[in-house]
């Protein structure tokens, strides 16, 4: 409880650390913050060419929005995924990359992974804003769903930072963690229906057995992607089961991350 109080009392530090990331990131670039948009757009183009034109993947038609545009459908899943993976990567490295600070000054160290979550979140917010605009222009009606989508974004932030906090501690002990995580994230992305629709997995499950789908859907990111698509692409309420699943997972993972981090925080300076 005292730790929470201290975190709250030093919230200005969190803001300043976040702004350090946000401002520092695109200094001395001509395009500045625009780079944060160019990156996902480039990824979108690559996946669209490969999966839409070459493999002829068909997204489901938005119900009730009626949208049938692969790149937009893709982005509704890809942007949350990119956010998640950037927070996990940045958060797990935040101890090692700020070791100079940790070894010289006392402050609640949890602000470091939090500031990564917030600064990456700032970029994500811009990306999602552009996506909503595009969806609106191409005939969807995501505007009404923005408040709910924002709530789900907050949930994803809690989930991501929870994972990042656990890995950050592990990474201080074993630097293998960062390399291992890169591989896991890569595989995890393909195990999540981001570039292909869930119906492909459902078809496969019909041939092999229902357990495939059950196991597949244990992946919290699958649920998050599903919920974001329901809200923004389909423009409808997500399934109650999915909603409860992501609320529970975010709560549990964040609490676990918080617990692991706060228990190990005191020894960080000597371990780094």
């Amino acid at each position: 409880m005292t730790y929470l109080k201290e975190l709250f009392a030093t919230r200005e530090l969190l803001y300043n650390l976040t702004m350090r990331e946000v401002k520092g990131q695109y200094r001395r670039t001509v395009l500045g913050q625009l780079w944060s948009l160019l990156n996902p757009i480039a990824t979108m183009l690559v996946y669209t060419v490969v999966f839409s034109f070459i493999f002829r993947a068909r997204p489901h038609v938005g119900d009730p929005s009626g949208l049938d545009i692969y790149p937009l459908w893709l982005m509704c899943g890809l942007l949350p995924w990119l956010y998640f993976s950037r927070v996990v990567n940045g958060g797990l490295n935040s101890m090692v990359s700020n070791s100079g600070l940790i070894k010289k000054v006392y402050f609640p160290r949890m602000h470091l992974p939090f500031s990564v979550t917030a600064s990456v979140g700032f970029t994500w917010l811009i990306e999602m804003g552009v996506l909503v605009l595009a969806l609106q222009i191409f005939g969807g009606w995501p505007i009404w769903w923005i408040p709910v989508a924002l709530l789900v974004m907050v949930l994803l932030a809690f989930f991501a930072v929870g994972v990042a906090m656990m890995l950050a501690i592990t990474n201080v002990h074993f630097r293998d963690t960062q390399h291992f995580t890169t591989i896991v994230l890569q595989m995890w992305m393909y195990l999540t229906p981001i570039i292909y629709p869930l119906s492909l997995v459902e078809n496969a499950a019909r041939d092999i057995g229902d357990w495939v789908l059950t196991v597949y859907r244990l992946n919290p990111m699958e649920r998050f992607v599903e919920v974001f698509r329901n809200l923004l692409y389909d423009n409808r309420w997500p399934e109650l089961g999915d909603t409860l699943f992501i609320v529970a997972v975010s709560g549990i993972v964040f609490t676990l991350g918080f617990w692991v981090f706060s228990r190990n925080e005191r020894r960080l300076a000597e371990l780094l």
Binding site: E12, M19, L101
Partner: peptide
């Protein structure tokens, strides 16, 4: 905790809050 790309002014605020 100084960020090399930020100005002295910005770093004063950042460092003071640390």
């Amino acid at each position: 905790g100084f960020h090399p790309e930020l100005s002295g002014r910005e770093n004063v605020y950042l460092n003071a809050s640390i």
